[in-house]
Amino acid sequence: MNRERIIRVALRSYPRDVRVSTGSEMLGTLLDSTSAESNALLARELVDLVRRGLSARATSTARVGARRLIADGLCYGGILLMAELVYVRVGAYVAGGQSAAGPGGMWEAGLLMAGLVLALIGYDRVGAICALSCFAVVTGVHWRAFAQSGSILLPDIIILIVCFAPMLIAPRRRRPDIRRLAWLVVIAALGAVFYAQRGGLVTLFLPPVIVALPFALALLPTDPRLAIACSLVAAFVGLAGLAQTLQNGPSTVGIPLTILVLMATPLVLCIAAARTRSIQRRDPA
């Protein structure tokens, strides 16, 4: 990788608006400053650049305001949950046909998919209406079946409402962009994983961990929104694991994993809340 490319990668630590306004100029200055110097100086410059970039990101996050940060985190949580529910249903259908797709069937997956597509593009409100109406109808129609099988718990419904209601009441402020549908490729890949593994808690738990958690941890120092979203999804998955354990009896993998996930949720939420407060203190909106 040449010097210019390395600097461009380091510049990505800055928020997009800063990169657009002064990114090229910073690149030119840094290339001039390090043109005749050693690699050690370049390394020092890059470390400082990334540090300043992350600090600029934290400042721009703080300007958003604490309420907006939390609302955004819940909206991201709603989208992650929708994605997870879609890939599980589609995967179950592909693996086992209509009966494996659950009492809601494929029309439920279709409605969730429509909600997910709209939310990904940027229409959070319409996406949330799709998701909430889907769960209202499915829960209403199949309540007895759910209650008997233990496949859904009240806290699960609360988490769904906690995530989808902010999408309806306080949607994210972003311009619609059809390119975000590229995330569907990731969701389709997760569906394929589910198909290959033929269900189970580990399959439900691992894909979001592999895809979202590294991003959430990387962003946590400067932006706790994805961490808030991940903690809610983890709570949902943990409760789903609990329901599965109640239904099928205790298993060696299920119980420790469920306990781990349910313990991680309040921990991540506490860290995210502390980080939100600390970011807010450095530059109150």
């Binding site: 002064t22 100029e25 910073m26 030119g28 200055t29 840094l30 001039d32 400053s33 020092r44 410059e45 400082d48 650049l49 990334v50 540090r51 300043r52 970039g53 600090s55 600029a56």
Partner: peptide
């Protein structure tokens, strides 16, 4: 002066004591 000009001039004025890194300069 432009960015790199400032880095050089600040170094001269301080007798080499101050080296402005690019991140610090733009901040």
């Amino acid at each position: 002066l432009h960015g790199y000009g400032i880095v050089r001039r600040a170094g001269e004025l301080s007798g080499g004591a101050v080296h402005l890194s690019t991140g610090t300069l733009y901040a």
